[in-house]
């Protein structure tokens, strides 16, 4: 079942300054969309509005199911989308427990949780860190953990806000590899906000430039 994200005529104004100006777009493919733009151009604002973490001042966000019916913005929809923050958002717990979080709250069986979490930790190269407190990870490891924690719940749409911020060149390469593999699997729509042009070009299928509150296509 494909989930379609319809962004229609979104406005967001901070201090009388429009950050998003009548922005419209449809995210409807299991592809990687890279939203590019300098700092302060409104990428995070847009991503948060799309992920239903914030409300637009005008315009509407719609999620449509495969029959193009709009979905109610309830917990069932929230559980189909996820967001990875630039600073990840790390629980004071082990790497394993951090990654298991989404499965635990969905009531998965213990055995299933263990196998899913171990698979995904293997996928992002963090198996050897699973017992470590996640707060002590390096930035690159923490970012990978954030991605693992997002994909383990099989979301329809993943929002990644600055996945390469704070990260060294070596880890950027690892993250690129992870995203390219994810793209090949084609299970999720991945929407990335980044100011890193070379990264965007490497992983993005569709590159969207955010300027003056709109996409330059």
């Amino acid at each position: 079942m494909a989930l379609e994200l319809l962004v229609s005529n979104i406005w967001k104004i901070y201090d009388n300054k429009p950050v998003l100006k009548d922005l419209s777009f449809v995210f409807n493919k299991k592809k990687v969309y890279a939203i590019m733009g300098p700092n302060g151009s409104g990428k995070t604002t847009l991503l948060k509005i799309c992920a239903l973490l914030e409300k637009p001042d005008r315009g509407e966000i719609l999620y449509l199911d495969s029959q193009k019916r709009p979905l109610k913005k309830d917990i069932n929809l929230f559980r189909k989308i996820t967001y990875v923050f630039p600073q990840v958002g790390i629980f004071n717990a082990s790497v394993f427990d951090n990654v298991a979080y989404g499965l635990n709250i969905r009531g998965f069986k213990k055995k299933e949780i263990i196998s899913k979490v171990e698979d995904v930790l293997d996928f992002v190269g963090l198996s050897h860190k699973k017992r470590q407190n996640a707060l002590t990870l390096s930035s690159g490891e923490a970012k990978r953990m954030g991605i693992a924690r997002a994909i383990v719940i099989d979301p329809e749409i993943i929002f990644l806000d600055e996945p390469t911020a704070f990260v060294d060149a070596e880890n950027v390469k690892i993250i690129e590899k992870i995203l390219l593999q994810l793209k090949d699997k084609g299970q999720s729509t991945i929407i990335i906000a980044t100011h890193d042009a070379s990264f965007a070009e490497k992983v993005g299928d569709v590159i969207l430039r955010l300027e003056e509150g709109r996409f330059l296509l």
Binding site: F78, Y83, V84, V88, G89, G102, R106, A150, I153
Partner: peptide, 16 residues
């Protein structure tokens, strides 16, 4: 506050 947001984006109900 990032903890609250993270929990939400991972699918937690308000109670969770």
């Amino acid at each position: 506050p990032i903890i609250k947001l993270t929990a939400r984006t991972l699918g937690a109900t308000p109670f969770q």
